[in-house]
């Protein structure tokens, strides 16, 4: 697998990261290095082995269906760049 400049442009767009055109080619090289390095894993024969989703063998902890959080509007909005009363305010999102 190899990434070209278009792939990098698209990934950057999806991640909402601005990347100058001049940086696309070097970034593609860097990413290809990383992907290539990880791809070594495919040399391991994993036939018949279930995918591992976690390195620890524990059962998912669950919470009880109890309301014990919320009612902290000021904390929630404290770092908002813009607000209007109890709302977050963001640049207009056109429907």
């Amino acid at each position: 697998m190899s990434l070209n400049e278009d792939d990098v442009r698209k990934i950057a767009f999806l991640a909402r990261i601005r990347v100058d055109e001049a940086r696309l080619a070097p970034l593609a090289d860097e990413l290809n290095n990383i992907v290539g390095w990880v791809e070594q894993l495919s040399e391991v024969d994993t036939n018949g082995i279930a995918p591992m989703t976690s390195a620890v063998d524990i059962v998912t902890p669950l919470r009880k269906d109890v309301v014990n959080d919320g009612d902290k509007v000021e904390d929630i909005l404290a770092n908002a760049p813009d607000r209007e009363g109890p709302f977050f305010a963001v640049p207009k999102v056109v429907e």
Binding site: V67, D69, G70, D71, K72, V73, I76, P86
Partner: peptide, 25 residues
């Protein structure tokens, strides 16, 4: 239908004031 949200302890109650049913999660 549940009292709390899928991944947090904030309430699911309908009709509360804006951002009142919000946890840090």
């Amino acid at each position: 239908i549940s009292n709390a949200k899928l991944f947090s302890g904030a309430s699911t109650e309908f009709g509360k004031g804006p951002n009142e049913n919000v946890s840090l999660v």
